[in-house]
Amino acid sequence: MFSRLLANSGRRLISKNSPLCLRVINAQRYSNAAVVTQATNKVAVANAYPAQLKDWENFKMPGAPYDGMGPLPPLEEFDPKMARHYVIPEDWFQFLYPRTGTTGLYTFFATVGTMLVSKEFYIITPDSWYTLTLIAVCVTIAKLAGPSIRNFFEEARTDLFKALENVKAEDVAGLQELVDNIKLEQWRAGAQKLINDAKQVNLAMMLETEYLNRQATVVETIKRQLDYQVAVQKVDTELAHGHMVNWIEKKVMKTITPESQKATLASCIAQLNTMASK
C-alpha cells in the first residue's frame, strides 16, 4: 500500500508532458498491473462505499431478531466545501460576505496580522521561520499527496466490506447454481413419461410385427404348397411329352425295313448324280 502511495505521489511530481511521464505511462499500458492502477487511480471521494441505507431506523433486518443486530446509522457525508484552504471554516467567509465581500476574511487576517506585528504583540523570531517552513511543507504534502493519502485510508476502511462483498457474491452464485440445478433436475424428471410412452409404442410395434409375421408364415406356406402343385404338374407334362416322343420314334423305326432303306439309298445316289452332271 505504501508503495502505491509513493507511486501515486511520484506520478503527481512528474509533469504531464515530460518524457519520463510518457515512459511511465507506456510501462503501465503494457504491464498487467495497468488495470489495477487505473482502478485505484480514480479521484477519491470520501465515504464512497456503495449505496448507503438512509432510512436505517425503519429497516428490518432479514432473519431478525438476533443478538447484536444492525443496521448501523450511515456515516455522515463528507463535504469538501466545509473548509477553505484545509483549515479555515467556510462559515467565517459566509459570515463576512454580506459586510465586506469575498476578500473580507483575507483583509481581516492581513490587517490583524499587520497590527500584531507593528504593535509587537507578535515578535518575529527565528522560530517564526520554522513555523512558516512547517506550514509550507504541510501545504506541499497536502497538495501533492493529499488525494493518495485519502485513498489509502478510504481503502483501509472499505477493505473488509469489499472482502465481505466477495463472500456474498460467492454465496449468491452458489445458491443461484443450486436453483438452476434443481430446475434442471425437475425438467429432466419429465423424460420418464416420454420413455414410458416409447415403451408402449415399442410394445405395440412388437405385437404388430408378430401378427404380421404369422400372416406371412401362413401365406408363405400356402404359396409353397401351390408352387409344389405347379411344379408337379410341370414334371408330369414333361414326362408325358418325353414318353410320347419315344413312342412315335419307336413306331417310325418299326416302319423302316432293309428294302425300303436300299430304295432310299438308290434314290439319293441318283439325285447326287443329277446334281453332279449339272
Partner: peptide, 27 residues
C-alpha cells in the same frame, strides 16, 4: 428454501452498516 435464502442475502443492507454479528449471522 433456497430462493428464500437468496432473497435474504439480496435484501441485506450495505456492509458498511452491518455489525459483525450481522455478518456472522448471515455468513
Amino acid at each position: 428454501e433456497v430462493v428464500e435464502n437468496l432473497e435474504r442475502l439480496n435484501s441485506l443492507p450495505p456492509f458498511e452498516q452491518m455489525t459483525m454479528d450481522d455478518n456472522y449471522e448471515h455468513f
